[in-house]
Every structure is written in C-alpha cells, then in structure tokens.
Design a protein around this nucleic acid. Structure first.
Lengths: 328, 328
DNA sequence: CAGCTTGACGAAACCGATTTCTTGCGATCT
DNA sequence: AGATCGCAAGAAATCGGTTTCGTCAAGCTG
C-alpha cells in the first residue's frame, strides 16, 4: 500500500498538497494533475486507520443484534444496511447472542474503533451505552428500549399482543395461552401484557397459561410441551416472537394437532411462510422498516442533529389465520 | 477517553512504561501497581485505532457473505463467530448481496482497515482478493471457490447433487427436473452436474428440465412455475439451494401438489424444518462446520502458518424424505 | 575494585493521514 | 511605487499508541 508520502514524492509536492487534493481543498489545477497521475500510478488510497486516528471518527456504523439466526433481525439488518450503504457508510454487524457481556464487549469495540454511531437492540438494561453517548457518538435503540434518553424505534408491542389475542378470541377460542420470552426483555413483556389484557377483559383466566421461555425455537418447543401436558390444556396459544412460534408449531404438528384444531397466533413473521399451516394468525412486525428508520435517525444524528431524543413507534400489521374455526 | 499520556502523568511514569505494563513487558512490580491504579481510576483502555496504525494489524476478521437473509450463511457465520470469539477476535459481517462491486468495496475496506484476515464466500471469480494476499493478509474461501491458490473450505457439491438426484430416482421418480442457481456460481454448477450425471446415467433425459434462477425464494418460485407449465411436467425436482427449495415447495403447495405426489429433494437445509411437508429429501450442508473450519484455518494463517494452500472438502449428509412413493 | 553484563525505564521516532501555521508570490489599492 | 491583501503550498504539529535506542544503576566476574 502506497502512502501519501510516496505519492507526494512522486508528484514532487508536499503530503499536505496530496491530502488537499483528495479532500477537495483548493489546489492549483497543475498540481492536481500531478497528484492524480502519481496516485493513479501507485494505486494509492488513503489509509483509513490513519484517517480515523486523525479525524477521531470513521464512516462505519455498528449494529448489535441479539440473534443473527433470527430472520427478524436479519431483515432488520437488511433495512439498516440499505440506508447506510446508500449514504456511503459501512455496516459492521455484531451478534450479542442475548448476552450482556458480549454486548458490553462490542460497545467497547465500537468506542475504541471510533465508529460513527451504533444501532442496537439492547440486551442489558442500560448497558454501557453511556460510554458512547458521553463521547458524542449517537446511539439508536431499535426493537427494544433502554433506560436512557436516546433515540429509539419501537414496535407497538402492547397493540401487537392485543391483536394476537383478540384474533384468537374472536375466532372462538377461550383458553388462550401465551408463550413469552425472557422476562428481562421489555418488548416481550409488553406483548404479554397485551395478551393478558384481552384475556382478563373477557373474564378469562390467564394464570397457569403463561410460559416463559428463551426466545429461540427450542424455547417455544419446551413451552408448548409444558402447555400440552397441563390437565386442561389451552385451546389456543399466542407466542411473543417468531422463533418460539416455529417451535410451538413443530410440537403441535408432531403431536398431530393441526390448526385450527388449536388456535395459534404468532407475533412476528413466520419465516418462509407458506411452509406452515394456513390457519395461523401472524402479527407482522415491520422488521426491515424498523431498520431503515433507525438508520435514518442515526444518520441525522451523525450529521449533527441536536433535537431532543425521539421515540418512533411503528405499528404491526395483522394477517388473520385463514378459516379459523370456532372451538368451545 | 483517557489516553496513555494521561495515565502516564497520573502514575508518574513515561507512556512507554504504561504501554509495557499493558503488553506484559518487564516492568518493576512497584510501577506496575502505579500504572494499574492510575489506569483504573481513569478507566483507561488503549485506543484501538492508534494500536492498529502502529501495529499495522488488528484483531478483527471480516466475513463476506452473499446473502445475510439466507439461514445457510447465518449458520456459517455463527460457526465463524464462535471460533473467533474464543480466540479473542472480533468479527465484522458484510453482506455482498451477490454483487461483485459490493464485494470489491468490502475487500477494500478490509484492506484499509487493516483487518487481520478475511473469510469470504466469493461472488466474483477472483475479485480483488490479491490486494489482501499481496500484503500478507490471509484469506480463506468458503462454500465457493476462487481462481486463486488460497485456503478453501468447500462442500462436495458434485456428491450432493448426485445424492439428491439418486434419492429421487431410487424412490421411483423418472422425470427429475433441476432448479439451479446463477451459472456464475461454481457450487451450484457442480450440484447441477451431479444431478445431470444421475439422470443421464439411467438413460433419462435432462434437457428441458433444467431451470436457472436466482438463488432466493422468488427464483425458486419462478422456476417451479415454469416447470409446472411444461407440456410434460417433471414428476420430481432437485433444487440446488435451500431458499429456491422453499420457493418451489410454496408453488407446489399453492397448486395443491403435496409431496410425495411430486418428488422434491433440496440441497441445503430447509429452514425451520418441521414446518415443511415430510416427504422431502434434504441434503444437509454442514453450514456451521464450514464456518468453524474456515475460521480455524484463518487463525492458523494469522498465527503465521506458511504451509501451501489447502482445500478442505466437507461432505453433505442426506436425510431421505419420509415415505417416498413410487411414481411412474 | 575495575570492567562488563543485565535490566528497568525515559526520550524520541514512528505508523499515515489532516490541519494549523507560515512563507512567498502575484495582484490590487492608494 | 510602496503597502496590503489573497491565495497556493510547504513545514511541522497532531491523533494515541508501540518500539527502538540510549542511559544509568545494580549485580556479577576476575
């Protein structure tokens, strides 16, 4: 890799002039040509690390997501990437694996790597986000809230929970269970509250029908198995994310129970949808849109926008299960 | 962020000594304590950018994959990540979107960011990989080959194609079609050759039953629709990747054709498997293992291993569709 | 005890860019 | 014509680490 000094030597100018040429600062046409010729010949491109050290910033944005194998988060990542790429930024994707220590680790990296900003779906309550914001680095929370006063893009989780449970109630199901994620995650709690609200409003009984599980397929499986083993099993179930929904449906289909024999409503998009039984309600979460919105907000902040922190709430969008059948 | 100079001043030593403490070079116990105390108090952590500029390397590895929304690649990414994380490296994930220009862009970044190495599933033939290897940066190809003489971790794609087609032939299907990916991608071509080899060996006719499509769900849909529209539609189909398999199955199920009425063999794992019909053959690709193997090879190279380039070939592993039924 | 080795540690160079400061030259003003 | 202004462009400082080099004192040898 050629350096700016080699280019300067070959062009017969000072490094400062080369730098000015590359940054569009005023230089005589004659020297511009010399520099252009020399740098082309040497295939020079500025060393980003040196630029970053000098400028104290870089055109790199970090995205921290809790599960890279969850299509919800990869769709979100796509949204982020599309916006950033168009704006000339690079995205580095970090998988926190729902592990607060990994989250801290990657936030440290974002910090010492002088990333321009960070978008994260937080695992820990406040994490070490402060380290970044204290240095003036913008951080946008996405999908999950933080305790801090920073920009956030969320889904109306309560409404999503309500929609899921309501669709089942309206279809005639009366013993509606809920498979929820880890209690620490606020989004799943809100969805659970939505479910509970619907059930109790109608005088139903929620106790005993709430299962907490990890947010992955195996969590959904375990929880569904537990529900089926109850004395009076539920006649319907809401899962608060997509992967647990997959797990639940797997268990049901293995047990030979096919919706609408049991009601199923999933908050989130079932991956690769039409592979699944039709009679399932999906509360579609705007994953990609979440990503594009967050990325745009981050870019505004990077550009110097100083307005107070905003929280944007996107609404989910329900697809009713086809042919729901009344159950007692 | 505190700098090494501030720590040095507070501890009453020189910056060099602080650096030595942090790098485990010999320093008297007394000064070590002073430095430790000072750096704890200032919450000092070394600036990675400065380290990188000075050391001309970083503990960051780039992983370039063509489609972040394909579970095959995210599983591969998990494998890479697990190994790297354990070795103290950070992973940055870049989505090339099957676009050679994006690939070039990210390779440039890897270069000017002084990444320790790169693992990539190449899109372009040789890309600009040379820029990295010329500087002594190790590059490992994964899943797809390059024209270059570098380490590679591949799947035995020919065998996978043969296994997929054979399972259908053995189940009694005789008009076996193939939905293949873009011709430029070597892995899909090899799989296609495997399919063709089986069909022609048995005196079958492959012409007219080969569809090329993009490597995503919609490609699989389009190709399957085209096959169904033929005068004599096939009675079975092989898809050379997972997502096209999903697309094909979607079209079939929408048309009311459920395997084993038609034979289906997918090379790759159907995501979230048990949501799909049972009578489908899957040729399981060792995605995660591909990732761990590639990461380990890369780490060896980073550590200075100079042996000639190796190519590791992993075998796929077949799950026959349940209850295949003979068709004419 | 002189002479030599050894080891801790500070001063300064270095990585490769950007930016401030300074210089020098030609054009404009009075 | 002499003073002033403007502008291109070089010298040098800077970002924050690491590493070489040199110094100096303590320990060892003969």
């Amino acid at each position: 890799m050629a350096t700016i000094y080699e280019v300067a030597a070959k062009a017969g100018v000072s490094p400062a002039t080369v730098s000015r040429v590359f940054n569009g600062l005023p230089v005589s046409a004659e020297k511009i040509d010399l520099v252009r010729a020399a740098s082309d010949e040497l295939r020079y491109s500025p060393n980003k690390t040196a630029q970053r050290l000098r400028n104290q910033t870089s055109e790199v944005v970090g995205l921290l997501i809790p599960d890279i194998e969850n299509p919800f988060f990869t769709a979100l990542a796509r949204g982020v990437e599309d916006v950033l790429q168009a704006a000339g930024y690079s995205l580095v994707l970090c998988n926190t694996d729902e592990d607060p220590s990994k989250e801290t680790h990657y936030l440290d990296i974002a910090n010492s790597e002088n990333m321009a900003g960070v978008i994260l779906a937080p695992v820990a309550e406040d994490g070490d986000i402060r380290r970044l914001t204290d240095r003036g680095r913008p951080v946008v929370a996405v999908d999950r809230n933080t305790g801090l006063n920073i920009d956030a893009v969320m889904v109306d989780n309560r409404a999503a929970g309500i929609a899921a449970a309501t669709s089942l109630w309206d279809a005639g199901y009366r013993r509606i269970a809920c498979i929820a994620g880890p209690v620490e995650i606020e989004s799943t709690e809100e969805r659970t509250l939505g479910w509970r609200q619907v059930v109790t409003k109608h005088g139903g009984d929620a106790t005993g029908y709430l299962q907490h599980a990890n947010y992955r397929v195996d969590g959904g499986r375990t929880a569904m198995e537990a529900l089926l083993a109850l004395e009076t099993p539920p006649d319907a179930v809401v899962t608060t994310n997509n992967l647990m929904g997959v797990g639940a449906i797997q268990v049901l289909s293995e047990a030979g129970i096919i919706p609408p024999e049991i009601g199923v409503a999933v908050i989130g998009d079932l991956p690769f949808t039409t592979l699944s039984p039709r009679a399932i309600t999906q509360v579609h979460l705007p994953a990609r849109h979440l990503g594009t919105t967050a990325a745009n907000m981050l870019l505004e902040r990077i550009a110097g926008d100083k307005q107070p922190a905003r929280t944007v709430v996107l609404r989910a969008d329900v697809t009713l299960g086809l042919a729901p059948v009344a159950a007692s």
